[in-house]
Write a protein that binds this DNA or RNA. Sequence first.
DNA 1: TTAAGTTGTATCTATTATGAATACAGGTAT
DNA 2: ATACCTGTATTCATAATAGATACAACTTAA
Lengths: 146, 146
Amino acid sequence: MQISSRFSVGVHILALLDINKDGISSSEFLAGSVNTNPTLIRKIMGMLKKNGLIEVQPGIAGASLAKAPSDIRLVDVYKAVEVVKDQELFSVHENPLRECLVGRNIQESITPVLSAAQIALEKELENVTIEDIIKEIKKKEKDQHN
Amino acid sequence: MQISSRFSVGVHILALLDINKDGISSSEFLAGSVNTNPTLIRKIMGMLKKNGLIEVQPGIAGASLAKAPSDIRLVDVYKAVEVVKDQELFSVHENPLRECLVGRNIQESITPVLSAAQIALEKELENVTIEDIIKEIKKKEKDQHN
DNA sequence: TTAAGTTGTATCTATTATGAATACAGGTAT
DNA sequence: ATACCTGTATTCATAATAGATACAACTTAA
């Protein structure tokens, strides 16, 4: 099981929109950098737009960030691309036997733990912004030239 | 996307093995409580056995915990049932364009963040044991009778 | 106004993971 | 010898993902 690459692709798109802000970032351009097809990019861009992270207009080539890179946290991207719904990272088996002590109480007993784990993961993604990723990209690039 | 219910089923099995330790917990018995088929239970039991969490023997009905419930952490179950591999909770798009600044550095830049998030999730599962779950089950049962 | 290019969607397909189900070999016990 | 159980392989239906094609609606430039 893996969380969809829509998340990492979303981050890729946002970082590139900022780095290429003086140019035109069409879905085809972005798709080239990500190495996928423009349709998937447009689908993800639609999600990012709906959540107020980017600005795009039908018919007009290119997109741009709707906020400063320092104001976009990775958790915003994570939630925008809907890779995981709230409270539902972990699936729990349905309809355990109500005639059994464990069966009738397991769901309510385990759900808070699973929820806490999911929240811990999301909290970690709150600490990183697109600006951080961009800085890291530039740093890696610089390091490689030394 | 959701993490397989093998995890919650595994916890269910372990809790029930302890609560029913004076009885015989065959795969059919466990399957009844979980409300699934015995094959899936045996498959998961095989994983739990391989990781030293339970004891089972071919031909002999029933299984039992290999450790005290207080010594089995949920993260042990999580890893035993292999719902998620190390470093691979998040999938990252492959082969981004090397001719692009973002494309050639995005993977190395984002991987540490994703890894940290995954570890945060697992850390949360380290804090809870099967004993905790059993206590919670009994507590919920008691609360319901008042 | 026409033509070209782009976004926003819908649709189809291949691939993969899950979980239900059946079957059966091999082990155990009465 | 019979009955029961575990361990494992296999088949099947379902769902999510990602690649791909097609096209309507919109914008811009010629």
